[in-house]
Design a binder for these strands. Structure first.
Lengths: 208, 208, 208, 208
DNA sequence: GATGAATGAGGATTCATTCAT
DNA sequence: TATGAATGAATCCTCATTCAT
């Protein structure tokens, strides 16, 4: 990326072009996300997003097709993290209960981050029908992870027999709720919260 | 209100006037609430509300000062039901655990009704600062009920020692979540859901 | 108006009816006029007028056909006072200069009263075309009084030859302006102001 | 700004951009001003302003923050002319009487122009409190000019001793009134009017 | 004569989006 | 790629006015 003289070429290579572009997209996304969470989607104008980035409104359209595209991208950014956690746990070792606890911890932690909060703080009805469909499918994936590991735990004897669906609802509700009440400047660290929750939410489920 | 001939006088008494007015206010409120839950506050226009009531938009202003006033009234209507349940349980008999279970059932049931859903489906940032303050106080009341009965249960021995705050977060989260996933046309009746939840959410807490 | 027993009959005679009605009309007019001068015609709602009178908005329509009718009546109330002054001076003795000075004093005094202020503080374009026509005619009358007495003064030698029209413009402008700057709580009493003005405005005109 | 071939570049330089923008602002201002004087502020809609300019309503918001901003800008445009006249006379030679006469002429002429008329035809109560404050300060400047030159004239002997405040009221009233009665298509040219007024209004004041 | 309720018309303002440059 | 400018669509709200009672 540097010339023989050690200077950075002012002519960006196609490679760097792509990286720049991608970085800008990310910047827009994070800024928008921040504002959306702060003020609520409908109270945020694209002008605000642009201003905070020191660019102009139409420039945003070079990276996103419109306001809901940004919203959607925010949501997806959050989902990717959830999906990664699920994949990681899936790939790792452990019985049903172990995996469930791991997911509770990871998903709970996610809920204390901006990207994670998007998953439940955004209103479904602000998306286009197409986006809604995709989101719905993603949510099902997450739900399926919870349910399947509960079911697996019952199967492998680490979890007492119960209705996985209802159990998942309780756990999911408690975890999602974290995104509403947890404050970074609060008394409990995210890690402490999720450790507590992992215990508490599986206490009644574990066989031992 | 009826003449000797048994006919209702067409001249409304002041009493009836008040009742009529109140009934209309309620009708507006329920219609708005319905639409808000269906489409989301920002996607609902006052025209829609008026149309569904077969009146005109400005007529709404005879009953509410503006759009956010309606929103606020919806929220408060939901809160009143919660407050009533709390008062009823408070006035009734039972140890901490009994009361907690009763609240879980009542609050959970509320979450399956339109008015109850308002409590958690509306976005705080759509209210005026003054409204937000009042709502915040109301929310504290509900939270206090959960925490105080958990604490009372620990005191009276019906609940195992634990952190009432965290326990309340778990329970509150699970219950509020009901408002998001429960469908009236779903497989489980509201009563069945809350009975299950009352069990499930206190299983780990009960001393016996 | 009282019965033989000395009590006032609760059944108003037609005569008293008329007086009541007239009194109410006047009350509305004065209240409206007050508000119009305070806040400007377009910033005053009929609700405000009604409220200040402790009646309801539609009640106003029993006395006036609409908002502009009230405005018009206010203006006319002011004009009547001017017309009376003119008639009184016309009927009285004195040469042209004497009469001009008397008119300056009376018209100037009028400008320090609410009714008088209406004459120049209201915007012509807030009236209907018909009202505008009538007002225009009234204004001409006042203007004619000024001009004719100036002309009469030139004729009778009390005023030095000059263009009556231009002189009237100067005098009229100075007098109307009083309505804009004079405050009841200011340092000069209305009488002091108009005495000063009568002098000042005729100093250059008088022959002596 | 032009290419070697003498053609104007279609790519506006920043400089030209600024000029264009400024010119458009002026155009809006003049159009609005025209309409305000024609129909009165409250009877003019932004749509009318936009239509007369062959643009759309929201385009106006690129140049002015709102309707009252336009109103305010109109007033200020008028004031600037008055301020310039005052500064010019102040900078020039002459005793108090000479300067007073010059101001009468210039201010009187201003009153026969659209921009000048704004100074007295707009209603103070249509401005925001902040604007009102600024306008009030401006008006004081103009008033101060009249009074100070009258006082200066008394000092230097060109004007007979009198109360400068009252004299300024008379002169100001007469001049402002021009804006109400003078028509461009009337019998007297603006210049003729103000020459006459300068004479007439100082006749009683001059020492000789 | 007075009222509560309802209405119709209108107007300012906001904002996502587009386009020429 | 980025920008200034312009637009169209939409919405809340106000208010004079009317009408049944």
């Amino acid at each position: 990326m540097s010339t023989a003289t050690g200077q950075v070429s002012p002519f960006p290579t196609p490679e760097r072009r792509r990286r720049d572009r991608s970085a800008k997209r990310e910047a827009i996304l994070d800024t928008a996300l921040e504002l959306f969470l702060e003020q609520g989607y409908h109270h945020v104008t694209l002008n605000q997003v642009a201003e905070r980035l020191h660019i102009t409104k139409p420039a945003l359209y070079n990276y996103f097709a419109g306001k809901t595209e940004i919203l959607f991208a925010c949501w997806m950014a959050g989902f990717e993290q959830a999906a990664e956690a699920i994949a990681r746990i899936e790939a790792g070792p452990g019985d049903g209960l172990t995996r469930l606890r791991a997911l509770i911890r990871d998903y709970g932690l996610l809920m204390t981050t901006p990207r994670g909060r998007c998953l439940i703080r955004f209103d479904d009805r602000d998306f286009t029908p197409e986006q809604r469909d995709r989101i719905s499918a993603c949510k099902k994936q997450v739900d399926a992870a919870f349910r399947s590991w509960i079911a697996a735990g019952i199967e492998d004897g680490s979890i007492r027999p119960c209705d996985p669906k209802m159990a998942a609802f309780v756990i999911g509700g408690a975890l999602n709720w974290i995104g509403q009440w947890h404050r970074d400047d609060g008394p409990m660290s995210p890690q402490a919260v999720v450790d507590d929750f992992a215990d508490r939410l599986t206490k009644g489920l574990a066989t031992d």
